[in-house]
Amino acid sequence: MLGLTASDAPPTVAVTIFSAGVAAGVADVITFPLDTAIVRLQVQCECQTSSAVRYKSVLGTITTLAKTRGPMKLYNGLPAGLQRQISFASLRISLYESIQEFFTTGKESNLGSRVSAGLTNGGVAVFIGQPTEVVKVRLQAPSSLHGPKPRYTGTYNAYRIIATTEGLMGLWKDDVPCHFVSAVIAGFCTTVLSSPVDVVKTRSVNCLPGRYTSVSDCAMLMLTKEGPSAFFKGFVPSFL
């Protein structure tokens, strides 16, 4: 049997981590203004000053912030955001296969090993990347949130002040519990929305020739013969 060529060989862990980090970083740069707008909308009711700018929509927030504070204000906290992607996304994406191999220990992969690998991989990534998330959000929030003067002068100043005034655990606020709850809710909502399409797709792919004339025909027959619950068969393993 011929050996793998350079183009066929799987990438090393280092290459995977680097590629995942760069990809996530580029995506973060593109979407960062949206992230900033979301943070501002979520915390604006906590502003102590009555003169604070009020935002009404994502686009309105981006436009108002760019006009009143300058376009670069939309990228406040970007260094922490990139650090988060490098530490969180790259590890979460690149180390999953290695962790899964550890749980399978030479055996065939099953649901239990995949769930264990996902929980371990996600937990490690969240623990390592959480300080960057805390700093990113605080820099994205309005500087007037806690008084007239800015809380921090920059990314590394924020790390230092949080660690010295709130202790090291201040950098891990709402770490695992918050991420776990949000992941469960997000996974549930995603499964609810995607399950009907996934079931129809599976049936269409697996059916004998002539069983269904089209995807819509498959969906209609499922609905009329089996009822709406047919679209959620296999929901539990999909959710897990």
Rank of each mutant, 00 (worst) to 15 (best):
S51F: 07
A52N: 08
V53Y: 11
V53M: 14
R54M: 15
Y55D: 14
K56N: 14
K56Q: 13
S57C: 09
L59T: 11
G60M: 06
T61E: 13
T61R: 06
T63N: 08
L65C: 10
L65I: 14
A66Y: 14
A66I: 14
T68H: 10
R69C: 12
G70L: 10
G70T: 03
P71A: 11
P71Y: 09
M72V: 15
M72E: 06
L74C: 06
L78Q: 07
L78I: 09
A80M: 04
A80Q: 02
A80K: 07
A80W: 05
R84P: 00
R84K: 10
Q85N: 06
I86G: 00
S87V: 12
F88A: 10
F88N: 12
A89L: 03
L91S: 12
R92C: 00
R92K: 11
I93S: 04
Y96P: 08
Y96Q: 11
E97I: 06
E97P: 01
E97D: 12
E97T: 14
S98R: 09
I99Y: 03
Q100N: 14
E101Q: 10
F102K: 00
F103C: 01
F103E: 02
F103G: 02
T104G: 01
G106L: 03
G106E: 00
G106S: 03
K107I: 00
S109G: 05
G112L: 15
V115R: 04
V115C: 10
S116M: 07
S116N: 01
S116H: 00
S116A: 13
A117Y: 03
G118S: 06
T120D: 03
T120C: 15
N121P: 00
G122T: 07
G122F: 04
G122P: 00
G122A: 10
G123I: 02
V124Y: 01
V124E: 02
V124P: 01
A125W: 07
V126H: 08
V126G: 13
V126D: 14
V126K: 03
F127C: 02
I128C: 07
G129R: 12
G129N: 08
Q130K: 13
Q130P: 02
P131L: 10
P131R: 11
T132N: 08
T132G: 06
E133S: 00
E133W: 10
V134H: 04
V134G: 04
V135I: 13
V137I: 03
L139Y: 02
L139P: 02
L139D: 05
L139K: 01
Q140Y: 02
A141Y: 05
A141C: 08
A141V: 07
A141L: 06
P142R: 08
P142W: 07
S143A: 05
S144V: 08
S144W: 05
H146G: 04
G147D: 08
G147R: 11
K149M: 06
K149F: 03
K149P: 00
P150L: 02
P150R: 08
P150I: 12
P150M: 09
R151A: 15
R151C: 11
R151N: 11
R151I: 04
Y152K: 14
Y152R: 14
T153V: 11
G154E: 04
T155Y: 03
Y156P: 09
Y156A: 07
Y156K: 07
A158C: 10
A158D: 09
A158I: 02
R160Q: 12
R160I: 12
I162N: 04
T164G: 06
T164C: 13
T165E: 14
E166D: 11
E166W: 06
E166N: 12
G167Y: 09
